[in-house]
Nucleic acid binder design. Structure first.
Lengths: 338, 338
DNA sequence: GCGCTTTACGTAAACGTTTACGTGTTCCGT
DNA sequence: ACGGAACACGTAAACGTTTACGTAAAGCGC
């Protein structure tokens, strides 16, 4: 097998304790022996065994991240940020793909518990009591990213969805639009669903524009297909709509695709603003104007907070609202220009 | 801390060996004691410590995956497949984001070595000697996904790029196109670059169509921007081009975006076929006809092979060419119809 | 030169498992 | 009734580290 610290000790004629001290940069040895030991390490190609270390230190230098659909473009951008921060902090990341069914989440949490991860990043799914219990059992820090928890006091990193939706809507209003629809998520979704709809509604009200149930469609998910199917129904509900706000980029692009098929010109006849700023937002045609979430930054920040929490540098639960911006591209037109 | 096997043993009035046997389903205990022990486990909420297990078993039940840009849409789909297969086989996956610089790759490999992962999935980057040496040191199985290695005999899972490019080109030819261009990758890239260009060239030659240097542009990367910038130069080189083959979906969509801006209608004036079948391929407008790689399947298959290799069920190096298909959408028009 | 601190190590326990081996009891065949 | 196999456990070593503690030598002030 791989050489152990014992082999190095023998090779260098010292005790394993000395080798350990040298490897870990602790005081207690002469320059001479340091050189001897380093040579031994070199010739043997010794690599410390992180497993044995973890056993005694009770630290695995590993964190777990739980994402629904790892392959989603949103998750994967966040993941990249997390991975960055983790490795900078000396941690590896184990990814778990939770899909949406809760059963798998519990299974994964148990697994992470057995593997003794030092912390957890939890994304997008609502924190159920069952999960929270396990978090407590595990006694490791948890940080939520692009989610929040209504019931439990866990640190989160996300943008203010209400504000984002509000400003997106106001953006359309400022462009002169008066008949504005929304392709929304689920009313059962307390994180991405409700706040965005509320932001939309209140922006309309603030500007004294009509609002009714007919101004929004709700959807199970936030995918392309949802948006594509929503456009026709929204058009039926709101025939003279000139602009719409979609609660996700995927839905926005789905709506755009449907518009193309219906022969509706974007943005000339219908303006569309999305939410997220995924990479596809700038790839579609016309490029999508959207509420830009700093996804990678959010992942990075969440990772950094988690690392701090693990290292005990930060005691307080520190949540963070990340700034969003509206990225202007070509999918919204200014009615005043006409 | 968490209860240990010792606590369970004490609680149930048996030895730790007995507990271990029961937990692991080994023979050597009565039904009575089994019940006692299980109750003790239940009341204490005992979870075996995978770290201690790993130390003695020399098995961590963990694999490492090395991807360039985790957030790339290609990588993330593959990742999902790998993750699936790994968890089904009882393994966790540690993700490492290698970017493209090699230095980071070595650092990650060392890390995975210290963490004693049981196997490695390596993607997209060419296998340098330096990496191969570490693989050997580690003595763990490695499988390549959507890469191959010219110099070393490592199992891989990928599609036949030459064939894919050949058929994509033939597809355009069969639609009546005679002036066909290609937006290619790098000539230095032996995996995705050269074979796809060669496939393109030989398809033209087989059908007695003109081919010259001017029929293709080369690019550093395979991104949207590369494609977008390539279209104008390709048009200059090949003014009466009616169709083009892009070596990646991102480039194809970049080209499509450039075409829109130049007022060139897709597919009426310019047909475009891509390569990969990313999720965006069906989201853009017009939806992209493309060579469809079964990305998730490839990840899944790679994961399954790795697991088999780790479990020792498979001794032989088993590589796999995955089937590709051409997914027809709306970005290519049939000249004969006109 | 005596006692003191400091330095440079070595010894051994501990982390939480698995497992080879040992031991006492039961049970069966003859 | 006796030898031995089968069973149900327990004991202890091992995995590769870290670290508290011990100790011998060196250095230093007086």
């Amino acid at each position: 097998m791989n050489p152990t610290i014992k082999d190095v000790a023998k090779q260098a004629n010292v005790s394993i304790a000395t080798v350990s001290r040298i490897v870990n940069g602790l005081p207690g040895y002469s320059e001479d022996t340091k050189k001897k030991v380093q040579e031994a390490i070199e010739t043997l190609g010794y690599q410390p065994n992180a497993i044995a270390r973890g056993l005694i230190n009770k630290r695995t230098q590993t964190i777990g991240v739980l994402f629904p659909e790892v392959s989603g473009m949103l998750s994967s951008e966040v993941l990249e940020g997390v991975e960055n921060a983790a490795h900078d902090g000396g941690f590896s990341v184990i990814v778990c793909n939770t899909t949406s069914s809760g059963k798998r989440t519990v299974k994964y949490l148990r697994l992470l518990q057995e593997k003794r991860v030092d912390g957890i990043i939890f994304a997008s799914e609502d924190v159920k009591e069952e999960y929270y219990k396990i978090f407590q059992e595990m006694k490791v820090p948890v940080v939520l990213v692009s989610t929040a928890s209504s019931n439990y006091n866990l640190p989160f990193v996300r943008v203010n969805d209400y504000e984002g939706a509000f400003q997106a809507t106001e953006y359309l209003i400022n462009k002169g639009h008066k008949q504005i629809g929304m392709i929304g998520g689920s009313k059962q979704d307390p994180i991405a669903g409700v706040p965005r709809m509320k932001g939309f509604e209140e922006a309309l009200q603030k500007h004294n524009l009509a609002f009714s149930e007919d101004h929004v469609t709700t959807n199970e998910g936030y995918r392309f297909q949802n948006g594509k199917e929503s456009l026709p129904v929204l058009l039926k509900q709101l025939p003279n709509m000139t602009a719409l706000f979609a609660a996700s980029d995927e839905m926005a692009i789905g709506a755009m695709s449907a518009a193309h098929q219906l022969g509706i010109k974007v943005p000339e006849e219908l303006s569309i603003i999305g939410y997220d700023n995924l990479k596809i937002a700038e790839m579609c045609y016309p490029a999508l104007t959207t509420v830009s979430q700093p996804l990678k930054d959010m992942g990075q920040t969440a990772g950094e907070i988690l690392v701090k929490l693990i290292k005990g540098e930060e005691k307080e639960v520190e949540s963070r609202y990340m700034p969003f911006t509206i990225t202007e591209r070509q999918s919204v037109c200014d009615l005043q220009d006409k």
